[in-house]
């Protein structure tokens, strides 16, 4: 009897959500959504500003011409684009081998031991080091030693900033590989070298590639460590041992300049940096999508 009546009767009062609780739920949902909106404001407004102010000046000349002198119209910053690519490349050439091999040690051979714990601790600290300190470091060991500002000095400063990112992501990659896979390689007589180079590294490659692209994206936008390492150059640097223009330093120089044309170029350069980082981040997403494990 009770059974049939409970089926046909409207929802019993004791199961109805009280209006107070319902309202509380709605308020919290609204709160969370507005927080999301607020968090998106900086990103959206930066993109909006950069695109509206930079897009108008985006002409082929930007990629082919040298920076204009004060008060001169037109011009571009081909030297800054190549300079950013070169300093980032130097940074990557230094930090990728060191970073990946460090992760090979901490995960594959020294997992949990004192030395690898110490290295992980240092990596954490390094990732928190202000970028200007990295610049100071490169200034001290390269600029003072060679007597000149250069792309190499800039690249070394950037490599210090890239290193912890690459170590972290490589470590994540190695950790994702099951213990069984390592045992399989060892169990049929692979040496440590063979199992690392032929099994572990290829399997962790999507992670490493993600780390490298993220590190590059970070490095491409850094200004402080380049100010007194790569410095700036009105012209194309003839070698990597000369002061070198970079996009970020060009933005810094031109944004505070009183000349309209240079200010406009700073916006274009900002747009290109943002686009560069966007492209690199998308690449990172694509390579990390084909994860093995």
């Amino acid at each position: 009897m009770a059974h049939s009546s409970s089926q046909s009767a409207p929802l019993d009062n004791q199961f109805a959500v009280s209006s107070g609780r319902k309202m509380f739920g709605n308020i919290m949902t609204a709160l969370v959504f507005s927080c999301v909106a607020i968090a998106a404001i900086p990103l959206v407004s930066i993109l909006f500003m950069v695109i509206t102010k930079g897009l108008g000046g985006l002409t082929p000349a930007v990629f082919t011409d040298l920076p204009p002198a004060a008060g001169v119209a037109g011009g571009g910053f081909r030297n800054a684009i190549t300079g950013t690519l070169i300093t980032c490349l130097i940074g990557a050439l230094i930090s990728v081998p060191f970073g990946v091999l460090t992760a090979v040690y901490t995960i594959e051979f020294g997992r949990g031991n004192k030395l690898s714990q110490f290295v992980s601790f240092c990596t954490n600290i390094l990732s928190g080091v202000p970028s200007i300190i990295a610049g100071l470091f490169a200034y001290g060991i390269v600029v003072l030693a060679t007597g000149t500002f250069s792309a190499v000095a800039g690249g070394i400063a950037l490599s210090v900033l890239m290193l912890p990112i690459i170590i972290r992501t490589s470590e994540e990659g190695f950790k994702s590989i099951p213990r069984d896979t390592r045992l399989a390689a060892t169990g049929i007589g692979a040496t440590n070298f063979q199992s690392v180079t032929q099994i572990i590294l290829p399997a962790a490659m999507p992670f490493i590639a993600t780390g490298v692209t993220l590190a590059l994206a970070r490095a491409a936008g850094e200004t402080a460590p380049l100010l007194f390492t790569a410095l700036f150059n009105q012209y194309d640097a003839k070698s990597i041992w000369e002061p070198t223009a970079t996009l970020s330093v060009l933005i810094y120089n031109f944004a505070i300049s009183p000349y309209k044309n240079q200010q406009a170029l700073a916006w274009v350069a900002a747009l290109i940096v943002v686009l560069l980082i966007l492209v690199v981040s998308i690449l990172a997403r694509i390579v990390s999508r084909r994860k093995v494990y």
């Binding site: 099951p178 069984d180 896979t181 045992l183 399989a184 390689a185 169990g187 049929i188 007589g189 692979a190 040496t191 063979q194 032929q198 099994i199 290829p202 399997a203 093995v292 494990y293």
Partner: peptide, 25 residues
Amino acid sequence: GMVFQKANPFPKSIYENVAFGARIN
């Protein structure tokens, strides 16, 4: 050589899985 409880092929092609052992040898 050892065959394990849980099948643990390498994240490589079927061909390379087999060729790996021979190559390292």
